[in-house]
């Protein structure tokens, strides 16, 4: 796994991808920071939470080539022919992308140092937002990794992961549409004489959809309110996507004819 991690991590810096991702993140985080400091206040936790919303752009860039590039070049065959555990390959690639995120976070650490030098506040909310940053990043990277495993085109992989992450980010809005849609459908068909029941069903559907939104669950961390469940949620679903990626590769190993 170490070898895969090392190879994949260094590959970010042997191609423009890593530099572009780092430059993009530096610019976006710098913009957030300057926007606040120019108004005379700095909330690092708000900055970190805002940066999480840019994951839908950064994660596809970072993960698009993780497995699809090997497929395109044909080097994927090495995973199946060398004595290396396939899970180690998947996890090594996941860790490499995650390590790149850790390097990106150096920008925020520099902002924290500037904040402290300017007698600003770096409190428990910053620790909470940092936790959220890495746990949500882990979940999103695993989704990007999975998207990369199902195609040999980096562009298609990036589009797939972008769409999935976009849907996750818009789950709250989607849930509102689903609520009114379900309520009006049931109100017009099965619950004609009981609109309250239709409304209640709509609310339940909306709540169920919202339950899958990791960003919704992690909002309180920025205030210093730590909750174990959102972290468990991000981590467990990240493992699910890593497992799905592993199964996707493993399927190819034994389906070779």
């Amino acid at each position: 796994m170490t070898a895969v991690f090392k190879r994949e991590f260094l590959s970010y810096f042997r191609s423009p991808v890593g530099y572009v991702a780092l430059a993009l993140f530096s610019f976006l985080s710098g913009f957030q920071f300057i926007n606040m400091i120019s108004k005379g206040y700095i909330s690092i936790s708000s900055e970190i939470v805002s940066l999480s919303s840019f994951f839908i752009i950064i994660v596809p860039i970072i993960t698009m080539g993780l497995l699809s590039e090997d497929k395109r070049r044909g080097t994927e065959i090495l995973f199946y022919t060398t004595p290396v555990n396939l899970f180690d390959v998947v996890f090594g690639k996941f860790l490499a992308a995650f390590a790149l995120f850790a390097i990106m976070f150096v920008n925020v650490i520099i902002h924290m140092i500037i904040t402290l030098c300017c007698k600003g506040k770096v409190d428990a909310g910053v620790v909470g937002a940092t936790l959220v940053f890495f746990f949500v990043a882990a979940l999103y990277i695993s989704i990007g990794l999975f998207a990369s495993s199902i195609t040999d085109s980096q562009i298609v992989s990036a589009i797939i992961s972008f769409v999935i992450l976009l849907v996750i980010s818009l789950l709250t809005t989607i849930s509102q549409f689903a609520q009114s849609g379900v309520a009006s459908f049931l109100g017009a068909t099965f619950c004609k004489f009981d609109p309250a029941k239709a409304q209640s069903a709509g609310e339940k559907v909306a709540a169920a959809l919202r339950w899958f939104n990791p960003l919704d669950k992690t909002q309180d961390f920025r205030y210093g309110i730590f909750s174990v469940f959102p972290l468990v949620f991000c981590l467990s679903f990240a493992l699910v996507f890593i497992y799905l990626t592993f199964r996707k590769l493993d399927k190819k190993r034994w389906s070779q004819k």
Binding site: G125, G224, F226, V228, F229, F233, S236
Partner: peptide, 22 residues
């Protein structure tokens, strides 16, 4: 994973919340 998350959310979710805000 779904059952585990629902369990953690419904049964332990509220108990495992810690307020470290100042």
């Amino acid at each position: 994973v779904l059952v585990f998350n629902v369990f953690v959310d419904k049964i332990l979710g509220d108990k495992l919340v810690f307020d470290f805000s100042s």
